[in-house]
């Protein structure tokens, strides 16, 4: 190996600064959420306490935080499952050209680049003009899918671009039906990327704001609740809430990453199953 060039150290420093820039503010509000009861929104810290976290649990102190958290969580799971299923089907469909496939492809791109507020406005208008009530589990759910599906599909496209078709041919040669090929060959191979799609589906939904703004109805999701708080709450309780949801996000990300890691480990341990077929 050639020795490190000076550029390496400069770039390392740059990368370090980038990470500070990325995480610094989040850590600052994490520290400030332990502000003493008399403290304000900025430094200095007036003592250290759990006061603002207790405040979160007090009924009606700051609106319906736990209800909105529950809704966001359920909605996240709904969006996650739908995103995985629909993206896998879509990814499989796009492996071969079918009539109209390029139109669908451009729809996906449009769904990705369209300003979120347009989805909010359009879906809101459709529901109000047709006399339907907007609700987070119907209009909100559909609006969020327009954001999570493009990501899921782009991941699936990337996965299938790298997919070695000879596995499928081998399965076919051994007499597997198309369904068996997908169930026993394709799905197990792409399983780890599906966890990635699920991660995108859940977290993008859990944090989604603009597309849910006019489509969630009278029951807020958590990001909407937080946004409402930013206009009328002037105590560190909002930092406490921010810290809690960020910790929750980290936990979710951690669970997903661990699952990927665990699957990889198990696969490596089991090794090849050649010769241990069902025959």
């Amino acid at each position: 190996m050639e020795p490190r060039r000076p550029a390496f150290y400069i770039l390392s420093a740059f990368f370090g600064l980038f990470l500070v820039f990325l995480y610094g503010p989040t850590f600052t509000i994490a520290i400030l959420s332990f502000q003493g009861p008399q403290g304000g929104l900025t430094f200095p810290m007036r003592g250290v306490s759990m006061h603002w976290f207790y405040d979160l649990f007090e009924q009606q102190a700051v609106g319906d935080i736990w209800g909105s958290f529950r809704r966001s969580f359920v909605l996240g799971l709904m969006v996650m499952v739908t995103t995985v299923v629909v993206s896998v089907l879509g990814g499989l469909a796009f492996r071969k050209r079918f009539a109209g496939s390029s139109i669908v492809f451009y729809l996906i791109i449009t769904s990705l680049v369209i300003p979120s507020i347009l989805i909010s406005l359009g879906v809101g208008l459709i529901f109000s003009q047709s006399g339907l009530r907007v609700h987070w589990a119907t209009s909100g759910f559909g609006s969020q899918l327009t954001w999570t599906l493009p990501f899921g599909l782009l991941i699936m496209f990337a996965v299938f671009n790298r997919f070695d078709k000879s596995y499928e041919e081998a399965a076919r040669d051994l007499g597997a039906s198309p369904w068996q090929t997908i169930r026993y060959v394709v799905l197990p191979i792409i399983a780890p990327s599906l966890i990635g799609v699920a991660l995108f589906g859940f977290t993008l939904s859990y944090d989604e704001f603009a597309r849910t703004l006019l489509t969630a109805g009278s029951y807020n999701t958590l990001p909407l609740e937080i946004f409402g708080m930013t206009t009328n709450v002037t105590t560190p309780v909002i930092f406490a809430l921010g810290t809690m949801t960020t910790v929750f996000s980290f936990l979710v990300i951690g669970v997903f990453l661990l699952t990927v890691w665990f699957l990889g480990k198990r696969r490596a341990k089991h090794g090849s199953d050649a010769g241990k077929g069902m025959m």
Binding site: P25, T26, I29, T42, F43, P223, T245, T246, S249, V252
Partner: peptide
């Protein structure tokens, strides 16, 4: 990782700065 956390919270975090 920050991509998978809330944008609004990340905006709020700039205020004390």
């Amino acid at each position: 990782i920050p991509f998978w956390t809330s944008n609004i919270i990340r905006m709020i975090s700039w205020i004390p700065f």
